[in-house]
Amino acid sequence: MSLFLIAGIALTGFLAAGLGTMVGLGGGVFVVPILAVVLGVELKAAIAASAVCVVLNSLRGSSVYLQRGLVNVKLAMVLQVSTAVAAIVGGLIVIFAPVQILKLLFAATLALTIGVMIARPNGGKRVKSGPDPYGLRASFDRPDDRGPAEYVPQHVRSGIGLSSVAGLTSGMLGIGGGAVQVPIMNTVMAVPLRAAVATSTFMVGITATVSALIYAGAGLVDVAVTVPAMAGIVVGAQMGGQLGSHVPVKMLRTLLIAVLLGLTIAMAADGLGFL
C-alpha cells in the first residue's frame, strides 16, 4: 500500500470525524463509503476498519460522558442484549453476503441517515415520575445549573426491539449506529437528548466490539487501513468537538446532507454495477 493511499485514508478519517462530530454523527457513516468508493479500499476491509474506529471513538466519548454522569448504564445494559445479538447477525452478513448487496444496504442506510438529519424528530416528552418496572430511572446535572434533570425511560420493550435494528446496522456496516439508536431512545423512550447521546455512545463501543471480533476472526481487519483511519478520526473528532460551537451548524448540516446524498447515489450505483 502506498504512502499516498495511507495519507488519503488518514485524511478521510480526519474530515469524516471532524465534520461528523460537529453535527452529532460518528465518522463511520462517511468513512466507509469514501474509502470504498473514492479510495478504492475493499468494502469489507473498510467496514472492519470503521468498526475498530467506532470502538476507539466510543471509549474516548464515553469516558467524558460517564464522568459527567450522563450515561444511564443500566438502560444501556437492558438495550445492549438485543443490540449485541443483532450485531453478531450483522457481522455474519458481512462475512457471507456478496459485496454488491452490502453496497446496496449501505446506500439504504445512508438514505435513512439523510432522512433522520432532515426530519430531526422531536424527542418524546420527558417523564419525571411514575411507574418504573425495570428500575431505569436516572438523572443528570444540567450544564446551566438548573438542577438535576430526572427521567424515567418509557416503552422499554419497544426500545429493546428497535435497538436490534441499530445493532444489525452496526454489525452489518461497521458504523456506530448512533444515527438509529439516539432517535430510538430520545423519541420512542423519551430519554432526554443529552442522556440519549451519551448512553448511545457507551453502547456503540460494546456493539462495535462484537462486530470487530467477528471481522478479526474472519481476517477482514486490514491494519494498513485501520490504523491510519484511527489516527485521522482521533485528531478529527478532537478538532470537530472544539470547532463545533464556532461554525454555522445549519450550513454545515446542509453541506453534509449534500455529501451524504452524493455518497448514497455513488454507493447505490456501484452496488447496481453502474460504476
Partner: peptide, 13 residues
C-alpha cells in the same frame, strides 16, 4: 449476558 454474547462472537464464524 452481554459478556456471554461477546464471548460467543469470537468462535462463531
Amino acid at each position: 449476558i452481554v459478556l456471554m454474547v461477546i464471548i460467543l462472537s469470537i468462535p462463531i464464524k
